[in-house]
């Protein structure tokens, strides 16, 4: 196995594009190293992006945030403006592994590991984030939800990698929240999760909402009917009940070692509702 530490994104792309065997990108390594140690993968080439300066930067852009692919979750947690704009994304990051793991783990890595249970992804989707993909034929931006293709697989082409993630500005009176269900209090993986974003107008009517469910399908699920149930309402009890039912209806989980289908459908609605209630509280407080 070769280990390379290129100094530029172009060099990194060149290396992985030229590799005839299995190439893997290393940022925090909190998934990759575990897979290596467990013998799940045996790559021929590992390209470490951390020596590329731009991958470790958070830059302001169009009122939002461009997050380099090797920025750690711990750095993001300490970024005041991001924390204020998108508390739901931060809540997701805070749940990844342990404090030590968060010192290494990255947003891009969590996205590209392509687990339907990834904690940072539902709220990224709810926030309307996009991924900047760079490859041999140049750069392109795609919505973050289109990066994973299914568990452990991405839509990236040969030689491509994610350079950065862009999180747009939050509109006025926007609240976000991420909640997950785990049997343990921490050091666990989501059995079901919900990341939501809710925007109100001055009168308290919901003008925009995005309700995203994790771990209930092969990829995150955008529960459009659930969002529609509260958009245009004052988000009263009736709207919330309708939203909860729609969120449950949007869930298409499987039975597995982490939970039953029946349980996940039920709890998807419960978490969506609890997350919306918390997001509303935040939107109203702004």
């Amino acid at each position: 196995m070769r280990y390379e530490t290129p100094a530029t994104i172009e060099a990194a792309v060149g290396l992985i594009a030229a590799e005839t065997g299995i190439a893997r990108v290393l940022s925090g390594g909190t998934d990759l190293l575990v897979q290596l140690k467990a013998g799940m993968i045996e790559p021929d080439l590992v390209v470490d992006l951390k020596r590329i300066a731009a991958t470790r930067e958070i830059t302001a852009e169009a009122g939002g945030f461009r997050i380099g692919s090797a920025v750690s979750a711990a750095s993001l947690r300490e970024h005041k403006a991001l924390r204020a704009a998108w508390p739901g994304i931060i809540e997701g990051l805070k749940l990844i592994g342990s404090t030590q793991v968060q010192g290494r783990a990255t947003l891009t890595g969590n996205l590209c590991n392509a687990s339907p249970a990834a904690d940072s992804v539902p709220c990224l989707v709810a926030a309307g984030a996009s991924a900047r993909i760079v490859g041999p034929s140049g750069k392109r931006d795609i919505p973050v939800q289109d990066v994973p293709a299914g568990p452990g697989r991405t839509n990236l082409a040969k030689g491509e990698l994610v350079e950065s993630i862009f999180i747009p500005a939050a509109a006025a009176h926007t609240g976000s929240c991420y909640l997950r269900f785990t049997p343990r209090t921490e050091m666990d993986i989501a059995v079901v999760s919900a990341g939501v974003s809710v925007t109100l107008d001055a009168s308290g009517t919901c003008t925009a909402a995005c309700i995203v469910l994790g771990a209930v399908a092969a990829r995150v699920t955008i529960a459009e009917e659930a969002a529609k149930a509260i958009i245009g309402t004052k988000v009263d009890e009736a709207a919330l009940a309708k939203m909860q039912a729609a969120a449950s209806a949007a869930a298409t989980p499987i039975d597995d070692k982490r939970g039953t289908k029946e349980f996940r459908i039920e709890v998807a609605g419960v978490l969506a509702r609890r997350a919306v209630e918390k997001a509303l509280e935040r939107a109203r407080g702004k």
Binding site: P183, R184, T185, E186, M187, D188, I189, D256, K257
Partner: peptide, 28 residues
């Protein structure tokens, strides 16, 4: 509350690790 050996129909253990075999952590 949580610990259990979970077997598939193939007779193989499905949760051979501390992520899915859940012993309590301190905060539990």
């Amino acid at each position: 509350l949580n610990e259990e050996y979970i077997y598939g129909k193939d007779g193989r253990l499905q949760n051979a690790g501390f992520l899915d075999y859940r012993i309590p952590v301190c905060s539990d």
